[in-house]
Design a protein around this nucleic acid. Structure first.
Length: 268
DNA sequence: TATCTTGTTAATCG
DNA sequence: ACGATTAACAAGAT
C-alpha cells in the first residue's frame, strides 16, 4: 500500500534514474488503467524525453518532453527498472528507454497510469484536486484546516483533497502518537491536540521517508523499504501491548476502514 | 471457499 | 455545500 513515504522514495529514485532518458517504446497489457486510448498513450509518449520526476500525495508525476505520465499505484505494486530483455513475470505497463533499460509497472488492485498533455496538467481532475502534501502542514496550517470543519479526524487525514499522502496504514500510528481516537470530532479538538496532531503527522511519515519507505513495498531494484513492522507502534498489532501503557491494542471498524487503537491512550 | 484488504470516484441521502 | 455512507472497480493472500 504505497502512501506518501513510499511514493516520495520512488519518485526520488525515478528522478535520479530516469532523468535524461528517452522513451522509445510503451507496452500496455492492461488498457483499463489508462485514461486515454492505448494507441494514443503509446504513440504520444514514444520518443519523449524524461525531464523530471516528482510526487504529490500518492501520485508520481513524470514530466516528459511530450506531456505528463501520472502514476497512482493503488493498493500496492512495483515499479521496477530492469534490462529490457529481463522483464519481471508480472507487469501491466512498461516503458522501454534508449539505453536498453525498461520501467515495468505492476499493481494488483486499482492502479492508474494516466496521461496529461504538456501544459494540461491542471485539467487532470484526480491530481489537480490534491491538497498539499501532509508533510507540508505546520501547526498553524493544520489549525486553519481544522477550524470550522466537522467530522472525524481520521476522515480529514485520509481526505486527499485536503491533505495528500496519508493512507490507512500510516494513519494508525499518527493518531496514536497524537493520542486521538479516529472518530474524534474535529469541532471538539483543543489547540494542544491540533498541535500534537501536526507533530504526529511529521513523526509518522518522516522516519519512513528517510528509510526509503515501508518494508511491504520495494524500490526500483526490488529491494524492500527500511521502515519495518517493528517501527510501527500500534498499526497491525492487534492483541499486542500498547508501547505506552501496556493495554491490549484493538482493531475496530471506523466507518468503512479498520483502525488499530489503544483504547486507553485514545479514548473515544 | 469465503472473507479480508492498503485507493479513488460516483452516487445518494440527510 | 458539506458530511456520511455505500457500492463499484482491473487481485491476491489467507
Amino acid at each position: 500500500m504505497p502512501e506518501l513515504p513510499e511514493i516520495v522514495s520512488r519518485a526520488r529514485e525515478m528522478d535520479r534514474a530516469l532523468r535524461g532518458k528517452t522513451i522509445i517504446e510503451v507496452k500496455i497489457l492492461q488498457p483499463k488503467c489508462l485514461n486515454v486510448p492505448a494507441r494514443r498513450f503509446r504513440t504520444v509518449l514514444a520518443g519523449a524525453g524524461v525531464r523530471e520526476v516528482r510526487s504529490r500525495g500518492k501520485w508520481i508525476f513524470v514530466d516528459t518532453t511530450q506531456g505528463w505520465v501520472l502514476l497512482n499505484m493503488g493498493m500496492g505494486g512495483e515499479i521496477l527498472l530492469v534490462q529490457r530483455e529481463a522483464m519481471p513475470e508480472k507487469w501491466r505497463v512498461s516503458f522501454a528507454f534508449d539505453d536498453g533499460t525498461a520501467l515495468a509497472l505492476n499493481f494488483w488492485w486499482f492502479g492508474y497510469v494516466h496521461y496529461a498533455g504538456a501544459g494540461k496538467l491542471g485539467k487532470h481532475a484526480m491530481t489537480s484536486q490534491l491538497g498539499p502534501d501532509a508533510t507540508e502542514f505546520t501547526r498553524d496550517r493544520l489549525q486553519q484546516m481544522v477550524t470550522g470543519k466537522r467530522g472525524a479526524v481520521k476522515a480529514l487525514l485520509l481526505d486527499q483533497s485536503r491533505m495528500a499522502g496519508i493512507g490507512n496504514a500510516y494513519v494508525h500510528d499518527i493518531l496514536f502518537m497524537a493520542r486521538l481516537h479516529p472518530l474524534r470530532r474535529l469541532e471538539t479538538l483543543r489547540q494542544e491536540e491540533v498541535d500534537a496532531l501536526a507533530h504526529a503527522i511529521q513523526a509518522g511519515l518522516l522516519p519512513s521517508i528517510e528509510r526509503g519507505g515501508a518494508f511491504y513495498e520495494v524500490d526500483l531494484h526490488g529491494k524492500r523499504g527500511g521502515f519495518t513492522r517493528e517501527d510501527m507502534l500500534i498499526g497491525y498489532r492487534e492483541g499486542e501491548a500498547c508501547p505506552s501503557c501496556g493495554t491490549v491494542i484493538e482493531k475496530i471498524k471506523t466507518s468503512s476502514t479498520s483502525s488499530f487503537i489503544c483504547p486507553m491512550c485514545q479514548p473515544a
